[in-house]
Amino acid sequence: MSKNNANLETNKKHVPTETDSSSLKGTFIFTMSIGLFIVLSWSAIFFLFLNRM
C-alpha cells in the first residue's frame, strides 16, 4: 500500500485495479436472477408460439 501511495503523487492516471472480490457476490446473484427470468419468460412465449402453430 505504501508503494501505491508513493506512486499516486507522480502518476495521477493510476487507477486501482484490485477491488474487494466478495462485493461482487450480490451483483452476481442479481445478474443471474435477471438472466434466468429473461430466459424463462422468452422460452415460455416461444413454446406458446410453437404450440399454436
Binding site: 472480490s21 461482487l24 451483483t27 452476481f28 445478474t31 443471474m32 438472466g35 430466459v39 416461444f46
Partner: peptide
C-alpha cells in the same frame, strides 16, 4: 485485462443467450 470470475460467468451467460436467441430468430 483482469476479469473477476463472476464477471466471466455472467458475460458467458449473456453472450451465450444472445447467440441462442439470434440463432433461433
Amino acid at each position: 485485462m483482469h476479469l473477476h470470475r463472476y464477471e466471466k460467468i455472467w458475460l458467458t451467460f449473456g453472450i451465450g443467450s444472445l447467440i441462442i436467441f439470434l440463432t433461433v430468430l
